[in-house]
Design a protein around this nucleic acid. Structure first.
Lengths: 237, 237
DNA sequence: CGCTGTCTTGAAGCGTTTCAACACAAGTGG
DNA sequence: CCACTTGTGTTGAAACGCTTCAAGACAGCG
């Protein structure tokens, strides 16, 4: 990992690209409602770093005292079950953040984060972030909104694991991936990762996709692309 | 449900009991760091209610605009999977709160809450709560801590469902229930609820407990009481 | 005491995993 | 450009874990 301090996110990933003169921070939902001057104050407390593909941001067991905001690239977040089996929790896109779980309790990471591609990441130390929260309560509300929605997601996921079989979990996941109004999906990950995310095996994913195709619900175009033929049907599997 | 407004929690459940002259609010972690005057301000924004055993506080699909703080009794929080199967998410004890998930997004409840026993509950309207958060940023930090820990819990749960078999989930759950330094557990719920919580069936719970007993890990004293004989062993199941 | 609900036990069936073999695609070096 | 390697995805068959349904045991409560 290569690391720079200030001016905020001045490495390749964070400075102007398609988005003009903006820094990475303005693209982050929890900050983007603030005014000019406040933004600058925040940027002064941000560090930036670049990671190679495959590099690890943090591991379970390490002290969690940093907030990571992804500026460019993709980052994998996963956990190890007590038996050592790995589970994919989520994939960060630019603007997403991680490391928060332990930011508010003096705790250790329970998950792992690693770069799936070359990645530009902005970081902020726990104490700096807490100071900001106390100074600008509106940021807290934004973070609470984000936590709240993530908590909802996570409980929904847990309930799906607990109450639904693989075919149904897969069906619902495909619907989650389907862009509004469209009917074609590009899977964002390999069978192995998809299996890990859905709590099953690549073999079973393969077979269930075949079954869904046989049932007329979907059509597999290539290994990563598929067309949804019967949205309503998938919903009720 | 019976409802009263002010003085805060003055119904039977909230006024002095074992705890002296305190109101329910001072027992709530997110508020209990505040000063005298601030407490009174908060109490002015709190309503109180009593629920009969079995009564529902809210249902999935209803608008979520109220924070519920349990003062006395027990409350069940559960979800319905897409296929209609019910899953127990958690059981609230006095001091715990619920309704938060949707408090920060204009959203609908996705879960159900009902009183397991007669219950005294303090409520606060969304807007009143948001106002408090903006006025006293330290409350936000407390709530963030609570959310953060709950998010961690939930992700751990999801990972357990996804990566571990029933025997292991049960074993870890028993360890979670085991009070520090003790070796006897009183299960806080029926087999049916335990099964729902762990994403299995009552029959399987019964059998797995037998297996754990046969393996020398535990000893069943009665249907709700058991003794842990091999803590280390359970951990690595 | 008998009723009702909770818990247990048994046997059959089903969904999923596992392991092994094979197909296929992408990338590398001769 | 082809052969070779490596990784990813598929397919088949057997084994396993769990659920389901049905019946019986037990406990709590009128």
């Amino acid at each position: 990992m290569t690391m720079k301090k200030n001016p905020a996110c001045s490495h390749g990933g964070c400075t102007a690209h398609e988005s003009g003169e903006e820094s990475c921070i303005s693209r982050v939902p929890i900050f983007n409602h603030l005014e000019e001057g406040q933004m600058e104050e925040i940027m002064g407390l941000i560090h930036s770093a670049s990671y190679e593909k495959g590099e690890v941001l943090y591991r379970a067991g390490e002290e969690a005292d940093t907030l990571y905001i992804l500026s460019q690239g993709k980052v994998r977040i996963w956990r190890l079950g007590e038996n050592g089996k790995e589970q994919l929790l989520r994939i960060l896109e630019p603007g997403d953040f991680t490391g928060e779980t332990a930011l508010f309790q003096e705790a250790l990471h329970e998950d792992y984060a690693s770069a799936m591609t070359e990645a530009s990441i902005c970081t902020q130390r726990r104490e700096d972030f807490r100071t900001l929260l106390l100074k600008y309560p509106s940021i807290s509300l934004k973070v609470l909104e984000e936590f709240s929605s993530r908590l909802g997601e996570s409980e929904k996921r847990a309930t799906r694991f607990a109450t639904e079989r693989v075919e149904s979990r897969l069906a619902h996941h495909l619907l989650d991936l389907l862009p509004e109004g469209k009917e074609e999906i590009t899977l964002p990950m390999s069978r192995k990762d998809l299996a890990s995310y859905l709590g099953t095996t690549p073999e079973t994913i393969s077979r269930k996709l075949l079954e869904l195709e046989a049932g007329g619900y979907i059509r597999q175009l290539s290994s990563r692309k598929l067309r949804i033929l019967n949205q309503e049907g998938l919903l009720h599997l």
